[in-house]
Structure formats: structure tokens, C-alpha cells
Design a binder for these strands. Structure first.
Lengths: 195, 195
DNA sequence: TCAGGGTCTGACCGATCGGTCAGGCATGCT
DNA sequence: AGCATGCCTGACCGATCGGTCAGACCCTGA
């Protein structure tokens, strides 16, 4: 039967999402969330086992998409990996701007928790793919800067439509990433690494 | 008289720098810092008025250089502003990787405090300069992503020499930034949304 | 009518936070 | 000797954190 008389669970989730994006995970207390919802802190902890579980449920969709992207990257190398990584990550960042913004600055601590332990490895693989699996410092630096910058920045463009932001970010990434294939005729680098 | 028998003040500063970069400002307690130094928490608060003062003294050199860069940007427009902003910020980011990493994720809250209130405005001007003072969303997005990404990423390259990191970042920025002059001033923009 | 389960709450807990304070302990000056 | 000063500390404070718990308040089905 329809039980939508009061969707407290959903309201808590929504309030947490709002506040996490503004003040961060650690910077938001269960009290703050309860106050916005208009319930008690105990009610928040009735609907969610603990604060971490609240965050986990909030991030679940984004993490699912991230995992899908990770799967699609397996086996790809060179510019193919770069293009899939670029498109996939930009799309993910745009769609889940808010969720990504939640993690702003709290990655190191959050990744230690079991619920998010695997994200570090996925994002490492994503960075490698965006660098075309190149070992050149320039490629690795560019990939890291782009991933970090997009994660950090996409939360600030709440006023830009998804499609516009996506195309702008995609052209930026394509322009900024070191082309791994086309770089070969350019110049022989000091160390020769073939992929 | 040289009284360098025990430079507790400096030791506290060094320990705070180390811990802030690892666990962040909020994530590091005065107790943690005192433990690493080998003194009591009260000693930390004897040498520094409060936790914020500790952070302020830690960031002072970086903030000074940032202010200098801001001064050098006044009056510059177009590609000249872009180039000065790029060189200045990359140099600053490389020299003060650790200090910048401290602010990771705590910008919104820290900038509310009076000691750091002006940084937001400076970084806004820096972003505008890197965008060549263009109003195009693409230029603004690229500038923001680059600034955020470099800030976020430069702390992770502790193993790369300053000169190498600087040149890599500079080529990345020059490649990624939207050239403002090449698009010639006031183009009728036959197609601005279409791509 | 009553039993029972889902929902919600105030009161409370231990831990930790940043910060205060009175005083101990050297050292150097008069 | 007496005193001042700089450095340091343990004990303590109020506030806040995440989390627990017994019980109140529905609503529904028997």
C-alpha cells in the first residue's frame, strides 16, 4: 500500500546531500541534518545505522556508475582508453556533481573506511587510463590534474546545464590530455617506453 | 643572543604542517600536534594564540606570494593576463605544494574566517585572469578546473623535482587554456552553442 | 478490544574537541 | 638572596560529536 504519508528516510537523505555539499561530510553533524528535516537526531539514526551508512546510501548510484566505467576500461590501451575515460568520467562528473562535491577534501579519510575502500583503486585505474597508460610524468600529471580539477570544480557550476557543461569539459580534457599515439613522431624522449 | 637551544615554536609549526597535509586542518587536533612534538597541548597554545593562528602563520609565506601575483595581474588583459596568471600560479603551486594541500577541502569554511577572507577574492581574480577575462563558459570552466586541479594535485607529487613539475604543469596549462586572442576580439559568434 | 510492529523522541553516554588557568621550574639580573 | 621572566604542564572547562536506549505514540489486523 502507498505509505508515502511521510518519507522521512528520503527527506533525511536529501537534507544530508544538501548539507554535505555545503559543509562537507565531517563538517555536517547529525544534529544539523535532523534540524533541517525537522526531526530529532535519534530519528536520523533510526533510519540509518550510522553516519557512514547515510553517506554510503547517498553515494551508491554514483559509485555504481563509476564501477561500470571501470569495467568498460578493462583491456583498453592508448588513445582508446583515454577517450573512454574522458567521456565516461566527464559524464559521471556532470551527472553526479553534487555527490562528487560531497567527497571534496575528505577522500583520504573516507577511503580508509571499508565501504569506500575500492574507490581509490578505481580512480587510480581511471587516472592511468586517462594518461593512456603512459609512464611519462607529463601524462600522469595532466591526468591527475584533470580528474581532480573536474571533481573539484563541477560542483561550482550548478547554474550550467548538463549538456553545456559536459561538452565544455570534454573539449577541455581532449585538449589538455597528452596524446599518447600522436606523440610518437613528435620527438624521441629520453626514455623510450612502448605501450 | 642566540637562543636556539630548543625551537619549540618551529617544531610545532613543522609538525602542524606535516599533519595538516595528511589529515587536513579540521582533521588534525592540537593534541595530535603536541604528541608529535613531544610536548603538551597547553604548550602548543602557549606558542600560538589558537588553532587558527597556527594555520595563519603556516600559510603566511604562500599568501604573501599569492598577493604579489595578484598585484602583478592588475591591469593585464587577454593573453598577457593568461600567461602571467599561468606562470605565477604554477610557480606558486609548486613552491608551496604542501601549504596549498593543507587547504584541500577546507576552503569554504576557512575562507569565512577573517584571517583568510581576502583569499577568495584573489583566487577569483586569478581565475578570471587565467580565463583571459573572457566571459565564455568554456574559458571560465577551463580556468577553474585548472586552478582547482593543480591545487589538488600538486600535493601528490612529492617525489617530483620542482623544476620538472613546474614545466609539466606550465605546458599543461598553456595547452588547456582557451586562447583568447586567437579567437580574435568580438567575433560575431556565428555559432556559439553549436559544436 | 487488544496485541504488535513501525516510527519517533528525550534523556543520556563516553569521547574528543579547542581553550583556560594556576602554578612549577629553570635561568638571569639586581 | 630575592625577584622577574620565559617556558612549560596537568587539571580542568564547556561545547559538541556520534551513538544508545527505554518508552511514547500511532496505525492496523485479529
Amino acid at each position: 500500500m502507498v505509505r508515502a504519508v511521510s518519507d522521512t528516510h528520503g527527506e533525511i537523505l536529501a537534507a544530508a546531500a544538501r548539507q554535505f555539499t555545503v559543509t562537507g561530510y565531517r563538517g555536517t553533524s547529525l544534529q544539523d541534518i535532523a534540524r533541517e528535516v525537522g526531526c530529532s537526531k535519534a530519528t536520523v539514526l533510526y533510519h540509518f545505522a550510522n553516519k557512514e551508512a547515510l553517506l554510503a546510501e547517498l553515494m551508491a548510484p554514483a559509485i555504481g556508475v563509476l564501477r561500470d566505467l571501470d569495467d568498460r576500461l578493462t583491456g583498453l590501451t592508448g588513445s582508446a582508453a583515454q577517450e573512454v575515460a574522458a567521456q565516461g568520467f566527464v559524464d559521471l562528473a556532470v551527472r553526479f556533481r553534487r555527490e562528487i562535491a560531497v567527497l571534496r577534501g575528505e577522500f583520504p579519510e573516507l577511503l580508509c573506511q571499508p565501504a569506500f575502500a575500492h574507490i581509490q583503486q578505481i580512480s587510480d585505474r581511471l587516472r592511468d587510463a586517462l594518461a593512456g597508460h603512459s609512464e611519462r610524468p607529463g601524462a600522469r600529471i595532466a591526468a591527475l590534474v584533470l580528474l581532480a580539477g573536474i571533481s573539484e570544480a563541477c560542483g561550482e557550476f550548478a547554474d550550467i546545464a548538463d549538456d553545456d557543461l559536459r561538452s565544455a569539459l570534454l573539449t577541455l580534457v581532449r585538449r589538455a590530455v597528452e596524446p599518447v599515439d600522436a606523440a610518437l613522431p613528435q620527438q624521441p624522449t629520453t626514455e623510450d617506453k612502448d605501450s
